[in-house]
């Protein structure tokens, strides 16, 4: 078996103000997996995500230990450009991710930073938009789109970089039920390794066979999503609550 796409070993991190967010996290994600990262607010999920593409690291001003590598390439200053190509992070609020005048310019931003130009850039933009079903909106200003459409374009901005792993922060937040389902269909259709940070436990069960629970800056559970959600003492201990009336035991798994 080749190196895991994502290999996090003993990751610890304290912010410059002394607040420590991670206390030795171990996480391995293999090619083609879809993994949900669950955990209460303040568990260190965002801090972990920001380490995956080297935005936070021991050299970024804080105090850290441990190592992250992506397909065997360690996350360190010299490799940042390649790391950020390999790890695509989609942030929670699409308004943070879309800042150019048109959808085309926004989707082209990432690959253009990688030095891609001309016909290849156009191909990447259109392919990424096709994957999220937004190709017809290519010349529209992003702020004219609905929230769900903007979230999909935000996913496309990262897909255009052709990442090895897609990291999504709360992909289903603020979506209406139809947009939420459309996004699930899109994510399932993508041929890419997926790490999804979410509070939406039914969404995790629907999309991710495996779940990792982060609590208090450490991994407290790692197993099949079904087993994690069905483990009531674990769920209670880490402030994870299923929505009213939702019982994972009554959900028939997708074929």
């Amino acid at each position: 078996m080749n190196a895991p796409v994502l290999d996090v070993r003993g990751l610890a991190y304290a912010y410059p103000d002394g607040h420590q967010a991670l206390f030795g996290v171990d996480l391995h994600v293999h090619r083609g997996e879809r993994v949900a990262l669950l955990g209460p607010n303040g568990a260190g999920k965002t801090t972990l995500v920001l380490h995956l593409n080297g935005i936070l690291s021991a050299d970024s001003g804080g105090h850290g230990a441990g190592a992250v590598s992506v397909s065997g390439l360690p996350v360190e200053k010299a490799n940042l450009a390649e790391i950020r190509r390999r790890v695509g992070v989609v942030f929670q609020d699409p308004d943070d991710q879309l800042f150019m005048g048109t959808v085309r310019a926004d989707v082209a931003f990432g690959p253009a930073n990688l030095g891609i130009r001309g016909a290849e850039l156009d191909r990447r933009v259109m392919h990424a938009l096709d994957q999220v079903g937004m190709a017809e909106f290519v010349d529209r200003p992003p702020h004219h789109l609905s929230f769900g459409q903007r979230r999909r374009v935000a996913v496309a901005t990262v897909l255009a970089m052709e990442p090895e792993i897609l990291v999504l922060d709360e992909p289903s937040s603020n979506l209406d039920p139809a947009s939420r389902r459309e996004l699930a269909d899109i994510l399932r259709s993508l041929d890419v390794t997926l790490l999804m940070v979410t509070h939406d436990l039914p969404y995790a069960l629907e999309l991710c066979p495996r779940s990792v629970v982060l609590s208090g800056g450490a991994v407290v559970a790692d197993g099949s999503t079904y087993d994690v959600l069905a483990d009531e003492p674990l769920m209670r201990a880490h402030r994870l609550e299923l929505p009213f009336g939702f019982d994972p035991r009554n959900v028939t798994p997708r074929p």
Partner: peptide, 9 residues
């Protein structure tokens, strides 16, 4: 702050 953070951890 950094000095105290180092000591603490």
């Amino acid at each position: 702050i950094r000095a105290t953070a180092t000591e603490a951890t």
